[in-house]
């Protein structure tokens, strides 16, 4: 498993303490799983994602990620309606391991309240939360 110093943590996304990330893209937000979480889970074998059109509030469970020996729920760091899901993960769930911030994205939402993005952690506060 990676040391904290080895983690890849881009500056252009915001983080949740549950280890999801969110990136603003136009008026929509892309959600994924941070490097720390994919590393802790190990080889991911399956990602269960919601349907397009599903609506969630902030903190709702929107899916699960499975590795061989563990399963973890995914929580939405901000409320919104699902406008796209990453279909590529069906065939290649390992993208979440190998490219968590780009090809391994999870869902795209139309946020209910964009200010919820501002409440999420930036890289340095997220790092602090990992140290704690």
């Amino acid at each position: 498993m990676k040391e904290i110093s080895q983690l890849v943590l881009p500056e252009d996304v915001k983080y949740a303490t549950d280890h999801e990330w969110a990136r603003l893209d136009g008026e929509e937000v892309v959600i994924g799983l941070a490097d720390y979480a994919q590393d802790q889970l190990g080889d991911i074998v399956f990602v269960e994602l919601p349907a397009i059109g599903d609506h969630f509030d902030k903190g709702d469970e929107f899916g699960t990620v499975e590795s061989v020996k563990a399963v973890s729920e995914l929580y939405l760091p901000m409320g919104g309606e699902v406008v796209a899901v990453n279909d590529a993960l069906e065939e290649a769930p390992d993208l979440v391991n190998t490219d968590p911030y780009d090809k391994g994205w999870l869902i795209r939402i139309k946020p209910t309240d964009l200010s919820e993005l501002g409440e999420m952690l930036d890289k340095s506060s997220y790092l602090e939360s990992l140290d704690g």
Binding site: D43, V45, F46, V68, D94
Partner: peptide, 8 residues
């Protein structure tokens, strides 16, 4: 045995 590819 490779349990990861079995599950993927």
């Amino acid at each position: 045995l490779d349990e990861t590819s079995a599950a993927r």
